[in-house]
Amino acid sequence: MPPRARLYKTEAIILRGRKLGEADRILTLFTPTFGKMEAKAKGVRKPTSRLSGHLQPLNRCRLQLARGHASDVITGCETLASFRGLRDDLDLLSRALYVAELTDRMTADHVQNLPTYRLLLDTLGRLESGPAPDTVLRFFEMKLLDISGFRPEIECCVGCGNALEPVDNFFAPVAGGAVCRECVPGQSGPRVMTLNGLKILRLLQRGSYNDVARVNLPPELAEEVERHLHSYIIGVLERDVNAAAFIERLRREGARTRIEV
């Protein structure tokens, strides 16, 4: 086996960071070549650190790393994209953090995963420039589930395997997808899935982002699709995504201020 180089370079999107010791941080990176990995950033909590500004979560950057004992150490960094539009808007920032958290939770360390890297990068760009951030999130969720091997079954009923009738059916996250009226009694926690809801879920699953972006979702339908995907993701992860609660809170408080004004 050839000796591994002490220094190596990679591109990465920074998913999150946590404090370590006096002035260091451990960063969770998502790279095109090594998949998700952790790396140590030394001294980045000091104000004069040359790296700190480049190593903020959601940054896409070019990194130089040195192999270390427990984790590799970042020795150089250059920002490729800072997605500033996401940082200056709390609603977009909370959604971008949701994207980063979901990517972190759905992927394994050190497994190369180029499709997820591309999806993550595209999603951050779409959030920054796109008109409908929630649609961007739904598309991201559906594609990420697909790439990760958790594609929900919405073509046929997961109970009997028959094609779904064009009527209101049910969505059972634990069973893995759509359930027809006949099979509902045996399922746990099914919720009504309207015909339009099913159509949108199928569009998210089969379509490209451009197909999805063309559809203007009425609020009730957007809410239904979000509910189905959210419950499905909780079923897959066996836990909630923290950032989702904050998005919900901002929505609630936003609605309240609008009513008060």
């Binding site: 104000p47 004069t48 040359r50 500004g53 480049h54 903020q56 940054n59 920002t79 800072s82 940082r87």
Partner: peptide, 11 residues
């Protein structure tokens, strides 16, 4: 203060 312009990030 004491920083280097060339190392500053875009933001």
């Amino acid at each position: 203060s004491g920083g280097d312009l060339e190392y500053a990030d875009d933001v």
